Simulated scan of single mutants.
Amino acid sequence: MGKEGTTELLLRLKKGEEGIYDILYPVIYEELHQLAYAHMRRQEPDHTLSKTELVHETYLKMIDQTRIDFTDKSHFMAIASRCMRQILIDYARKKHAEKRGGKKKDKTYIDELFQNPKHKAEELINIDSALDKLEKLNERLAKVVEMRFFGEMTIHEVAETLDISESTVKRDWMKARGWLYKELKGRFKVD
């Protein structure tokens, strides 16, 4: 078999071709690993899940789904980012449940959360809960936050994935951050 591009492999995946994940995975592994690195930078220093484990769990979660609906490589990577977010949120919930009853730690405002590379498990759970609420109010705003914050996608990449203009992404990003600030400000204290 000749060397195929990622887009061609993704199209074959979308058509449901048997065994295509085994061909696609090595091709996109490095990009998935970089995406995992972006997600893991925001975790506590004592996080026990490695980037490689996150990539593998994401891969397993994605192949367990009966049908992944994506439009192109950027959209596929956005779905992978969402899977990583869900895995890390599940991990954070489990860790938080184990620590429940302990002393609550101070938290930061949402703008600081977007700039701070280290997030506590409880903060991630609060952000995830707020994003779920935002998704019910405005799905596109939630997707923009997920892609920008969790997936560290550029304005251009988000615009391509959602098939909207870059100026719309910028406006949505500002609206979403403002909404999240209002939603989360009562849960976080200024350091």
Rank of each mutant, 00 (worst) to 15 (best):
R100S: 15
G101T: 11
G102W: 09
K103N: 09
K105C: 06
D106F: 09
D106A: 15
K107Y: 10
Y109M: 11
Y109H: 00
E112S: 01
F114R: 14
N116S: 06
H119A: 10
H119R: 09
H119N: 07
K120L: 15
E122L: 09
E122Y: 10
E123R: 00
L124R: 11
N126R: 06
I127F: 04
I127N: 00
D128R: 03
A130Q: 09
D132M: 12
D132S: 09
D132I: 07
E135C: 09
E139R: 13
L141A: 12
A142V: 09
K143I: 02
V144P: 07
E146W: 02
M147L: 04
M153P: 02
M153Q: 09
M153W: 03
T154A: 01
I155Y: 06
H156F: 14
H156A: 13
H156G: 12
E157Y: 06
E157C: 06
V158R: 08
A159S: 11
E160M: 10
T161K: 04
T161I: 04
L162V: 09
D163I: 07
D163R: 11
E166H: 00
S167C: 05
S167R: 12
S167N: 12
S167L: 05
T168S: 15
K170R: 07
M174N: 11
A176Q: 11
G178E: 15
W179T: 12
L180A: 06
E183N: 03
L184M: 05
R187S: 13
R187M: 14
F188G: 00
